[in-house]
């Protein structure tokens, strides 16, 4: 019998599949949150792997109505191809009232968060699988693999119980839901390596469309900014991410910070 060792990509993939199967075992009313972006599409791919080509629970798409046209097309095409039970949730009221990104926090809150709450309430999901990664910003840094939310969507991140090895929390209290994060240990470049290895279909919005710019992340059209990049295919992408090392990123971030600091100091009379 041939014995080939596992490489790092294999290990990440195996760990994610294990987590997805655990969630499926423990929670019967489960759904995957599909934002059509690269991370949640990789997640969808892993779900198909875990269940040998099937997606045995619904996919929830929170539609803010501001997504790129290409994303809707992609969604419908693959929902059909992969036989996905697609549920779309929209905060119709807010959208009708013309909620826009003038006040970004309010808009995200109304369309995404409230939309999600409505989705969960409508379909009664007790657990959600999401594509959150460890190297994303902000509050995500404290996530566990299986992370509970109470009915107000609040999360006690201050005193989380420990999560050891592969043993995850597997009960929910009534009226709360559990979030499952199979991609928690992946980084942005891991996602691209995997997309390349598996040849996962991805919308071409992520690549340079010919004007030396591309979208690094894809959400609602009005709020997504392009970054300078000539990456027009996956190899370029991986190259760019591996070699845009911390110092470049830090350099750009620091320049931005310095500019803000200068402004402040000027106003205060220190410059």
């Amino acid at each position: 019998m041939k014995k080939e060792p596992m490489d790092r990509m294999d290990e990440l993939e195996a760990q994610s599949i294990y987590i997805i199967r655990e969630a499926f075992y423990h929670y019967k009313n489960l759904a995957i949150l599909w934002s059509i972006g690269k991370d949640s599409t990789v997640l969808m791919w892993l779900v198909r792997k875990a269940f040998f080509g099937n997606v045995p629970f619904p996919a929830l798409h929170i539609d803010t109505s501001y997504k790129f046209e290409k994303m809707y097309k992609f969604r419908d095409e693959y929902a059909k191809k992969w036989n996905i039970d697609l549920k779309v949730a929209r905060n119709e009221k807010a959208i009708a009232e013309g909620m826009s990104n003038e006040k970004k926090f309010d808009c995200c809150n109304a369309l995404k968060t409230e939309g999600l709450k409505m989705g969960i309430a409508k379909f009664g999901f007790e657990a959600l699988i999401l594509g959150i990664r460890r190297d994303e910003h902000g509050i995500r840094s404290k996530e566990r693999t299986f992370s509970p939310r109470n009915e107000k969507f609040e999360w006690n991140y201050k005193d989380q119980p420990p999560e050891l090895w592969n043993q995850y929390k597997n009960e929910t209290e009534e009226k709360s839901h559990i979030r499952v994060h199979p991609l928690l240990h992946w980084t942005e470049v891991d996602i691209w390596y995997y997309i390349k290895r598996e040849e996962i279909p991805i919308t071409d919005l992520y690549f340079d469309q010919g004007d030396g710019k591309r979208f690094r992340s894809i959400g609602c059209e009005p709020c997504c900014g392009k970054i300078d990049s000539c990456a027009s295919n996956i190899d370029d992408m991986i190259d760019e991410l591996e070699n845009t090392n911390t110092s470049e990123r830090a350099g750009r971030a620091q320049d931005k910070e310095d500019a803000t600091t200068m402004q402040k100091l000027r106003a205060l009379g220190y410059m």
Binding site: K3, P5, D10, K49, F51, F52, G53
Partner: peptide, 19 residues
């Protein structure tokens, strides 16, 4: 050994999630 769309064939080795 059941896998889905995997480049691996043959016997499974420690660390793999399989059917």
């Amino acid at each position: 050994i059941v896998r889905f769309e995997s480049p691996k064939t043959g016997a499974a080795v420690a660390g793999e999630c399989i059917g």
